[in-house]
């Protein structure tokens, strides 16, 4: 049995702009294990949202391929893809724009089932009520429309909609960045509970390193369309290697006034390399972009032989 749910190889997505080709993501190679949450961090413009949307097949990739549960879906025609679509769902960033204002919550929740022609009318309704309860909303929500809900409640509805089809895989793209901090905590807790209850595999995209740390098992760092570092969460936060990852981690304000004058890494924002970097394994399942470290020096310093991936 394959332990990878998703395998991404050399994935690229380019956009045409007035000034030429913009390589939003370039040469991304990544595996997502069954049952894990993989966090993607990076700044605005680093390509993390494009990566999520390309995996969802909302964008056509330029190169590379995406394998979902052993099945190559990279260029599968939409009609053939549709039955598989229910396996991977997305939670969007902005719960104000991603939910239709004209439909009732019940209709929003049942729509995916209608499109997939699943279950009878009664069963669909039952399922919608079920999920409302799961995400902590009252039953009366079923007949209400979106404008009657707060931001946090809307995001709960967005989560419920994503779960209506019993997906195996969820992409959550900045699901809490539009919410106030105290509401954010509740939504994160809910997501985490649901994930372990339903044994979901999750790609969690966020610019907030604290939130990604809370949610993820492994974390991948993106920078200017490239994947530059990938490691289990604690390894990455304790031993960042890439200068950009270091800058990113040292930029986060620490919520402890006693430590405000502690040493901080200077902020280094390297230029974009011409070619996508090759990731090399430096031990402890930690991968880092080879462009950025002098391999020989690193080997001597750390007394390790690097294995090229």
């Amino acid at each position: 049995m394959d332990k990878h749910l998703i395998t991404i190889q050399n994935l690229s997505k380019y956009f045409m702009t007035k000034t030429g080709i913009h390589k939003a993501i370039d040469g991304i190679t990544l595996d997502i294990f069954k049952g894990e949450t993989l966090g993607i961090v990076g700044e605005s413009g680093s390509g993390k949202t494009t990566l999520g949307r390309t995996i969802m097949r909302l964008y056509e990739p330029e190169h590379g391929n995406i394998t979902f549960d052993g099945l190559d879906i990279t260029h599968m025609p939409e009609k053939k893809l549709r039955p598989y679509r229910k396996e991977f769902q997305m939670i969007f960033q902005n719960p104000y724009e991603s939910l239709s204002p004209r439909l009732t919550v019940g209709e929003i929740l049942e729509e995916p089932l209608v499109i997939q022609r699943m279950l009878s009318k009664e069963e669909r309704t039952k399922k919608a009520y079920n999920l409302l309860e799961k995400v902590g909303l009252p039953k009366t929500s079923y007949l209400k429309k979106i404008h009657e809900f707060s931001g946090g409640q809307r995001q709960r509805i967005g989560i419920a909609r994503a779960l209506m089809l019993d997906p195996k895989f969820i992409i959550a793209d900045e699901p809490v960045s539009a919410l106030d901090v105290s509401v954010q905590a509740q939504v994160l807790n809910l997501l985490k509970d649901l994930q372990s209850e339903l044994d979901l595999t999750c790609l969690f995209i966020s610019h907030d390193l604290g939130v990604v740390h809370y949610m993820s098992d492994r974390v991948a760092v993106m920078y200017l369309g490239h994947l530059i570092e990938l490691a289990p969460k604690d390894e990455l936060y304790r031993n960042p290697i890439h200068p950009y990852t270091k800058s990113l981690l040292s930029s986060i304000p620490i919520a402890d006034p006693e430590r405000r004058n502690a040493y901080r890494e200077p902020i280094i924002l390297p230029d974009k390399p011409l070619y996508p970097p090759q990731l090399i394994h430096v031990g402890s399942d930690h991968y880092v972009s080879a462009n950025m470290i002098n391999i020989k020096e690193f080997e001597i310093e750390n007394n390790r032989n690097l294995i090229r991936n």
Binding site: S182, Q186, Y214, D234, Y237, I252, A255
Partner: peptide, 12 residues
């Protein structure tokens, strides 16, 4: 409600 990056994740 601030996720800590050092202690391991108890609930927020």
């Amino acid at each position: 409600c601030i996720p800590s990056m050092e202690s391991d994740s108890e609930r927020l």
